[in-house]
Simulated assay, not measured.
Amino acid sequence: MSTLQISLAIIGGLVLAGVVAYNAWITRKSAPRTAVERVQDGGGHPAAGVDDDSENAVYGNDARGSGTRRIDPILGDGLDSPSGGPSMADDERLPPPQVPVTLSHVVNPPEKKASLDALIDVITPLSLEGEVSGDALLAALPGTRRVGSKPFAVEGQSEATGEWETPRPGQRYRALQAGVQLANRSGALNDIEFSEFVVKVQAFSDAVGAAPDFPDMRTEVARARELDAFASGHDAQLGFTLRARRAAWSPGYVAQHAARLGFVTGALPGRMVLPGSQQGQAPLLSLAFDPQAAMADDPEKTALRDIALSLEVTHVPRSEQPFVRMRQAAASLAEAMDGVITDDAGQLLSTDTMDRIGADLESLYDALDSRDLSAGSVQARRLFS
């Protein structure tokens, strides 16, 4: 073999090796970022051979995200309509507000079911001639706890505490009441639903020997419409989208960074929540991504280009500063994962836009407080459901 042939063979080999190396680099560059557990030696330092990149280090559990529906920003220049939206066409970076997120990584148990409330319920007293057992009341309850699209309930007044409660076995009651909710996100109580409520309560009363005293239908339906009109003008659900700038994310990579901010696994695949600080309180924030990616055979090989961060405004107390925490969480995740904060259409959200939404929220909180429907209260959570 001549010197020329040998030289050409060497050059060809080098070119082939270069192509293989380039392809390997491109493949690695485009692969979704994954969570890597940081292994520590006895001295508390990363063990040899383990990637020390802070973006790929997980401290503790690799929480698995689990899915919810995307909630878009719907606060506009005013609060007259829950469907209005701000203009979000600015590409300024959002600096994270300095509010610590140090919530417990434990999802709080649900609170005790609240009593009927004249503010948001039609309430019908049921007169009894004597005592009736909780067992008899439970046996006589209708098969469903709804009237049309509205929750329905029967309660007895506890002799021990004087509080209204759902009938319990082994207890005895001298006073009863039945109720149906005036309005929720499906609309106001209408004539048909009120009539169904009357039929259902009358059948129950006949079974337990009670006499119902129904309020006037016209009055209650008008009250339901007024409450629904208020709720429609003051409902607020906010949503941010975090989009990857370059490399996509794996579900574990997202969960790793969200867990550092206090998020825990939710009830559905692809959903994580930031728990409230009080027992029985709704989650402060929800983080959601593609549930199919979370349920894949190998989630770390699936690629996420965006995730959704949402706030159910009327369900979280103002004292928790939920919107400030939402801004902080979004900014922290965007910085740590090399992403940007946008609206659902992909337009970057600016600091000025965030400030305007925050000011609108303060007005919303004031309006809810004025109706004794403060954000995060049991009544508000029932009405805005």
Rank of each mutant, 00 (worst) to 15 (best):
F204L: 07
D338N: 14
Y365R: 04
Q171N: 05
R28F: 09
L14F: 15
V340W: 02
G65D: 07
A211D: 13
P46E: 15
I11W: 11
Q177M: 10
Q292I: 07
D117P: 11
T241Q: 13
A294K: 09
G266Q: 03
P283H: 05
R64V: 07
Q237W: 14
Q256M: 08
A17H: 02
G346M: 03
Q321T: 06
A248L: 09
P299V: 01
R356M: 04
V198D: 07
F230R: 03
M337Q: 01
V39A: 09
G233W: 14
E163D: 14
S232P: 04
A294M: 10
D80E: 14
Q281D: 13
R305W: 08
I10G: 05
A21M: 13
T144I: 03
L285W: 08
I71R: 09
G134A: 13
L383P: 12
F323L: 03
R318N: 02
K29I: 12
L128E: 06
V15N: 00
E163N: 01
S54G: 03
L103Q: 10
Q281H: 14
A336S: 12
V154G: 06
L304D: 07
S205E: 04
D297I: 06
G239R: 09
S363D: 13
A183M: 15
Q40G: 02
R172K: 15
A188Q: 06
S250I: 07
A183R: 10
N61E: 11
Q181Y: 01
G130L: 03
A136T: 12
E37N: 12
Q237M: 10
A229V: 13
S133K: 04
A203L: 14
L189H: 08
L333G: 03
G239A: 04
S205T: 11
L304C: 03
N61R: 14
A9I: 11
Q202M: 05
A203G: 07
A244Y: 02
D344A: 15
G12N: 12
T27K: 15
L268T: 12
V198C: 08
E163Q: 14
W25T: 11
Q171F: 09
R93D: 12
K113H: 00
Q328W: 14
D297A: 15
F197V: 14
A211H: 10
L274Y: 01
A57M: 07
R70N: 11
G346I: 09
A139F: 00
G376R: 04
Q347C: 12
W164Q: 03
A35W: 07
P322I: 00
A210D: 03
A48Y: 04
L138W: 05
Y22L: 15
A136G: 07
L287I: 02
F384S: 06
L94W: 02
E335Y: 01
G43N: 11
N23L: 14
L287C: 08
A303H: 09
G358V: 02
D191P: 06
L128V: 04
V221P: 06
A136C: 04
R93H: 10
K29P: 04
L75D: 04
S377R: 00
F240N: 12
E320H: 04
P317W: 14
A331N: 05
A293G: 02
I74W: 10
V58Y: 02
A160I: 11
Q177L: 10
S7E: 10
L383Y: 08
D91N: 03
P212F: 06
L182S: 10
H257M: 05
R245S: 00
A136L: 11
Q292V: 07
L138V: 00
A255L: 02
L14S: 05
Y365M: 12
F263E: 05
R168V: 07
T3L: 04
M88P: 02
L227F: 09
V254P: 01
